[in-house]
Design a protein around this nucleic acid. Structure first.
Lengths: 133, 133
DNA sequence: CGTCACAGTGACGTTAACGTCAACTGCTCT
DNA sequence: AGAGCAGTTGACGTTAACGTCACTGTGACG
């Protein structure tokens, strides 16, 4: 046996194409302990778990979270085992983040409204040659 | 005459306290041409215009825009004179930014919903000791 | 007149999230 | 054996937005 290598693993190239990231990025994430691909000799093999985590990482990034934030939150999806203490902490973190997000959205709403008003005003003043229908 | 210095100017210290920023920040913004305080000898005097711009800068930053983005948009509020071409460009920029903001808000809405669901799930499973009322 | 506190000017340091080499190491194919 | 290529490991470069010195300059005060 080759030390129990799951059958559905992917090489770094396959990962890059599948998720549209660079090899550098994947290695970087590994260094940051966001991913833990199997090391066969010197090469990396990404498991289903790694792919799930990567998907979550990318989603987190789209929302503007730092990799460090993401790393901590990842455990929320991960460990289905005991360690309720850890889990509780993860949830608290998520709740905090949730509040931050809602605050951010509220601010965005205000900004959007302001900008829209500003544009409408400029148009009304005829300062702008009607930009759209 | 001391070369026409407006009466309602503020020193760097006053600005720092009024807007809760550091001197370094104000000097940095000046270097980036976001602010243009009057230079009396070597000292800086911030005018009403500078204060208005700073307020807009800080608001922009809260929304996650880069200083470069902000610098360009600032002209939208500023020049009430001619130069319609420039003005048009500024408006287009604002419209683009508006779209980005709405997209971002949409993503945030999704993320918020997902997180909420996730938390509710965790609670339902009894994995977490009821974090709030 | 000394010195203090504040202002100002470089200029280098910092964090995040990678990009970009350079220089290997192994395979694999011929 | 040689070529070629994917993959790896450092290690330095990059952008943004300041922080943090170190040092100079200056007006006010006792």
């Amino acid at each position: 046996m080759t030390t129990e290598i799951p059958s559905d693993v992917m090489t770094i190239r396959e990962m890059c194409e599948a998720y549209d990231v660079t090899p550098r990025t994947l290695r970087f994430y590994e260094a940051k302990e966001l991913l833990t691909p199997i090391r066969v000799g010197t090469k990396r093999l990404f498991t289903r778990r790694d792919r799930a985590r990567l998907a979550l990482i990318l989603r987190g990034k789209r929302f503007g979270f730092s990799l460090e934030d993401i790393r901590q939150t990842l455990d929320l999806y991960d460990r289905d085992d005991g360690l309720t203490a850890q889990r509780k902490k993860a949830c608290e973190l998520a709740v905090k983040r949730l509040a931050e997000m809602e605050a951010q959205r509220a601010e965005l709403d205000v900004a959007i409204a302001e900008l829209k008003a500003e544009l409408a005003d400029a148009e009304a003043k005829g300062l702008v040659p009607k930009h759209a229908a």
